[in-house]
Design a protein around this nucleic acid. Structure first.
Length: 239
DNA sequence: AAAGCTTACAACCGCCTGAAT
DNA sequence: GATTCAGGCGGTTGTAAGCTT
């Protein structure tokens, strides 16, 4: 795989900043300047080093490509194991994960994950769905008559909102849609209610958003919203 | 050999946060 | 306390190379 001169053709934006692939000359200017003056103050780096690049662009180039000590080459099986383990623990906290993989950047790990694992998320079989849906249902009934999402992160809140319309009816609002999906009557305790319940949309929730709920649940104090997320998680909804 | 698909990854964008004013 | 701004982070995009059909 060719590194370097790929992607966007070099051009300038409305503000006159250069965009696109970095040239060897630009790399040299940036490296020399940072080696001399140290990291930080990226906006002044771009000016002082004679680079017509934004501070953000300079920082990114340095951190992901020019910084000394960066590893090159394929992720090793050991590194892959660490990535899998830490991702299970923290979700898409790429910079945090990168701290445990010396020489690897968050960008590299993120790209690796998306390429190798993003599309290989386990799809639950029907039996699993039934079990988990039953748990969700029971937990919601037992613990909350009115589930608030006010304490959830915006991301998590975007995924799912559950509310009780009356004592016996619940509805799920996926992605804050205009038309919430109504659950069958609470009196049903068998599997039949899950059969009738159109959950496909819920099961297709993007993996990152599931992780967002997981993270929210793991980090926040118990509250209705996060507590519910914990229940979802414990019930196996996030896999 | 050519077309289409997949993989890899550099680089951008938008949002968030914390420090400075 | 409000505003501004730089830096950091995660998500996304664009494109070349490799692979498959």
């Amino acid at each position: 795989m060719v590194r370097g001169m790929m992607g966007w053709g070099a051009n300038t934006n409305e503000q006159g900043w250069r965009k696109g692939p970095w040239t060897p000359e630009e790399d040299k200017l940036l490296s020399e300047y940072v080696n001399l003056h140290g990291e930080g103050r990226w906006s002044s780096v771009s000016r002082c080093a004679g680079l017509n690049r934004t501070g953000k662009s300079c920082r990114l180039r340095w951190v992901n490509y020019l910084r000394p000590g960066l590893k090159r080459g394929h992720i090793t099986p050991q590194e892959e194991g660490i990535i899998i383990e830490l991702h299970a623990l923290w979700g898409n906290k790429w910079s945090t994960i990168a701290r445990y993989l010396p020489g690897r950047t968050d960008n590299e790990i993120k790209n690796y994950w998306r390429t190798h694992f993003k599309t290989k998320v386990k799809v639950p079989v029907k039996q699993d769905k039934k079990r988990i849906l039953r748990q969700m249902r029971n937990q919601t009934q037992q613990n909350y008559t009115n589930v608030s999402t006010t304490d959830m992160s915006p991301q998590a809140e975007e995924v799912i909102m559950i509310k009780s319309d009356n004592d016996n009816m619940f509805s799920i609002n996926y992605n804050n849609d205009e038309d919430p999906v109504e659950l069958p009557p609470v009196t049903t305790t068998s599997d039949t209610w899950t059969e009738n319940f159109p959950m496909d949309g819920l099961w297709n929730i993007d993996d990152e958003l599931k992780v967002a709920i997981q993270n929210q649940a793991a980090t926040a104090n118990c509250s209705y919203g996060t507590d519910y997320a914990v229940n979802l998680y414990n019930g196996g909804f996030i896999f």
